[in-house]
Design a protein around this nucleic acid. Sequence first.
DNA 1: CGTTAGTTTGAATGGCTTCAATCCATGTGG
DNA 2: CCACATGGATTGAAGCCATTCAAACTAACG
Lengths: 217, 217
Amino acid sequence: MGSSHSARQKLLWPSDPTDPLNKIVGVTMSFPRNGEIYGEDESTDYLYKVISGAVRTYKIFGDGRRQVGAFYLAGDIFGLEMGVKHTFSAEVITSAKLLVIKRSAVMGLAEREGDVALRLWVLTARELFRVQDHTLLLMKTARERVASFLLELAARVPAADFIELPMSRRDIADYLGLTVETVSRTLSDLQNAAAIELPNSRRIVLRNRTVLRRLKS
Amino acid sequence: MGSSHSARQKLLWPSDPTDPLNKIVGVTMSFPRNGEIYGEDESTDYLYKVISGAVRTYKIFGDGRRQVGAFYLAGDIFGLEMGVKHTFSAEVITSAKLLVIKRSAVMGLAEREGDVALRLWVLTARELFRVQDHTLLLMKTARERVASFLLELAARVPAADFIELPMSRRDIADYLGLTVETVSRTLSDLQNAAAIELPNSRRIVLRNRTVLRRLKS
DNA sequence: CGTTAGTTTGAATGGCTTCAATCCATGTGG
DNA sequence: CCACATGGATTGAAGCCATTCAAACTAACG
């Protein structure tokens, strides 16, 4: 698992009080910027819930190319897998607080209690849905990918008329299957088209969502 | 659901005798070539197991582009989803026999019996794994995509030194995010590179898998 | 034997990448 | 406090890979 961590503290799963997963106890841990959470092929002994900050999962290919599989923000659960080894690596983007849960505790409970098993199934199904959306993204043009990405992110982040990007252009590029240059150019294009505004490189004002939705497909 | 069907017959799930899903009874149905199984946004009342033949799932975009989500061959289960509506449409490629199971029967059993619930979870997790591999495909070059596709298919199909493709070049193209022309050209390239041989358009002899694996990434 | 759908091949175009330079923000040492 | 180094982002220009448009070929089927 990750190397540097601090601030251990026992507590319950902090979400919907009727959630059957509340029966499981976890531990909060703080991870530094760019810190490793787990590596590809490490055993799936833990799963995680993002309390604050942002996380990316990724794979590195033989020739050095990197594929970003997903971004996880506050409230998202990740690292839950059926196999004994993780299929992606996970890293912190901005410094993050994570709730860390022992997989064995979850699985043991699932065997005895049906509602927990159903909840886990739903989590996997939701992840499947997310990955399917990702494949749809990758069949589109650069403009469509960037527009879709911005709308997807805007829908997940607390409501505001702008997005504060936790990730770099490289992270976005590796998620969208583009180069950093193309991402940068496309964002400039969208700004020229009056769809967005870029006060600085990490903040994006969604000036016209209708235009974005039209570009999206 | 699909329009034309015939040869109804009650029977048990025909696979591993220890499979807890054997407790569920289904009905076999024959579907004609290119027949519709279910449409996108239709309710998820049934799930399916391929007895023989081949199936594709797909989505059509506003501008007419088609995205093929997956190919299902003999033994594969598809159509199992958490949501009330299907996220893809499903069609028969070659004429197929499918085992059709009522979703409510499966879900009801899952609530009472933990091993069934676990089995369903595994099925969804396997689907997730498959879709993740698909996203990895879509980040690669045309050669890499075609090479990966051939190896993936060869691994699923009964062992032989050749593949009998059930699907058309268009199907392959829409699955790989390429045009038919690019797929055709790439197959010709691979033949020139002595990696494969094309006795006819539907049969592919894997002449040199090592070369394919090298091209794959 | 002609029609049709599917596949292959050719030539030209175009969108994204590659290579390269500049810009910008941040931090560090003199 | 300024000078300079550093990493990330943007912009420009050239090249390339996949697409587009078009034509020829093949197999299946009436």
